[in-house]
Amino acid sequence: MPTLRDNMTDLLHRPILPLGQRAPLLELAEVGKVFNGQVTALRGMSLTVHEGDFISLLGPSGCGKSTALRLIAGLSTPTQGRIRWEGGQKAGDLGVVFQEPTLMPWATVVQNVYLPFRLRGQSLASVKGEIDEALALVGLSAFAGAYPRELSGGMKMRVSIARALVTNPRLILMDEPFAALDEITRHRLNTDLLALREKIGCTVIFVTHSVFESVFLSDRIVVMAARPGRVIEEVLVTAPYPRDEAFRTSAGYAAHCKVASQALHRAMGEAA
């Protein structure tokens, strides 16, 4: 069995190149999904994901953003079109964070983060380094032996993020991960997520229905409309990284939020 960590020394340091210079990673070509032969959840979605992209899928309920994520995750097969990974998809290419922390309540933090390795048949001892590092990255080293119920909502989400990145995946999918958290915690996690991305250079597709969250986090916002779910336009957020709390109050942030809001309104208008 090929191990996940053949060609890397640790989780760190994949440089993020500027937009336009990034190598393609994943391509969706005219991807559509029809449920039950009658409900069109997604129609004709084309998108090329590049290494280092932080892409937000932004749109109202029913715009197919979660469907798109499930298709990319391989949890569902497209009715039309195809999804192609550069160099083929390998085990451990994907990390996923759901809206709920989705932790096993009977397992400690370490055992939860160990899960992807355990399912690959790797012993805990052989991946202890990776697990410790992932926990350090999300700031939970001190809680390694805790059970999920002992943690706050934000901390549970951090464990979930640590589990998603512990295998050093080529792509991390996040399905409205912070939607259920209070705003202060959400801002904090947004900032920490960006800092983490600066460190390890991961590629992220992030589903959200918040304009502000998508502008703060991403460099590409894919705006989608509902009934049927489809892509309306793409907004580029040109503000440079690293972004911190100061970015939230900057003129550039406000300008981008305006552009994204207008795009979202057009998407809503087309659906109505």
């Binding site: 995750a73 391989g74 949890l75 994907l94 996923v96 989705t102 096993m104 009977w106 899960l115 399912l119």
Partner: peptide, 29 residues
Amino acid sequence: TDHNLRDLFRIYGASRWQRLRYLQLPSAL
């Protein structure tokens, strides 16, 4: 079992036995 956890096990390519052993039996306890 939590449906998101089931999805997660699928994404990580868990076998039927692994799903039973590490997900379903603890959930059923």
